[in-house]
Write a protein that binds this DNA or RNA. Structure first.
Lengths: 157, 157
DNA sequence: CTTACTGCAAATAGTTTGCAAGAAG
DNA sequence: CTTCTTGCAAACTATTTGCAGTAAG
């Protein structure tokens, strides 16, 4: 299955015929080195802090390009703006704490299996997944058990 | 028994002390009757078509309220705007076709199980989930097995 | 040289907010 | 009557685009 992975290939190949500009190289580098997910604005700021000369439009334009070339993934987390991260071989999901706002990554084989089932049962060919769980992390979780919780009648757990 | 189906309770209870306005009643009705997910704008348009007098801000304000009261769920699909739908007892996930744009709902017990595992393993209390799979539906799926070809009109930029 | 890329500013899309008028309780 | 809600317009945030100048190939 790894026969066609090109994430590590040369810069030339990366951009598939497009021109290699300092902005593109830097942006992709920053995304790859970031350990989490970045917003367009965070990315822009980081680039400027490194002394690079580029504009926010360039950031957006290139994010779109990278996405099209499958170099990065775009996530629609529970926030107003998007987040981007380098496409990696290890697929993962996100836990979002509604209190402290942190985003925790986790892995689960469920997603992979779910995809298989969907392809078989519905003929839907899945190319990308976004799995987000919202809730409260161990630290922010309320201690006491609510008695009259109105919003949790999902066939119990 | 805790199986209070609060979704069907009286209008008074619904808004938890807030005032009951014609706009609120209509909006919630429309959301409940819609079989899919609506955007704020679609909802606004539908309401206007029914002759109702309301503004887009009112739609947004009330969507926010309904969300807070757990009457509806907000989804961040792979689009620029949000989608809303009545909170229902049957939890479901979304398949989004990147070609024709349709959003298909499906159910899977995987999600429920994943949530259990996460709570046990990570102590993360999950209150809401968004599971989206992007890809190509049976109709739009290319016949040939081109998985890695970015395919289709890449035009430029 | 040629064509694609960038920066800037202006344009959009989606959503929020301040304030005065109006409706619910 | 009092308080909450609405409508309108203006504000805001995230993102896109037109155009002329600039850099990559």
């Amino acid at each position: 299955m790894d026969s066609n992975v090109s994430l590590e290939s040369s810069t030339k190949q990366r951009f598939a015929g497009r021109k290699i500009t300092s902005q593109r190289t830097l942006l992709l580098d920053l995304i790859r080195k970031a350990d989490g997910h970045l917003s367009a604005d965070e990315l822009y700021r980081q680039a400027r802090e490194m002394g690079a000369s580029l504009s926010l439009s360039t950031v957006y334009r290139n994010l779109r390009l990278f996405k099209k070339l499958n170099l990065i993934d775009e996530h629609h987390l529970a926030q107003e703006h998007h987040h981007y991260e380098a496409r990696s071989s290890t697929e993962h999901q996100h836990l979002i704490c509604l209190d402290c706002g942190q985003v925790i990554e986790f892995q689960s084989s469920f997603t992979k299996r779910m995809k298989q089932v969907i392809r078989r049962k519905m003929g839907f060919e899945i190319t990308g997944a976004e799995v987000h769980f919202m809730g409260y992390c161990a630290r922010c979780r309320p201690q006491e058990e609510q008695v009259n919780t109105p919003a949790r009648s999902y066939g119990h757990d």
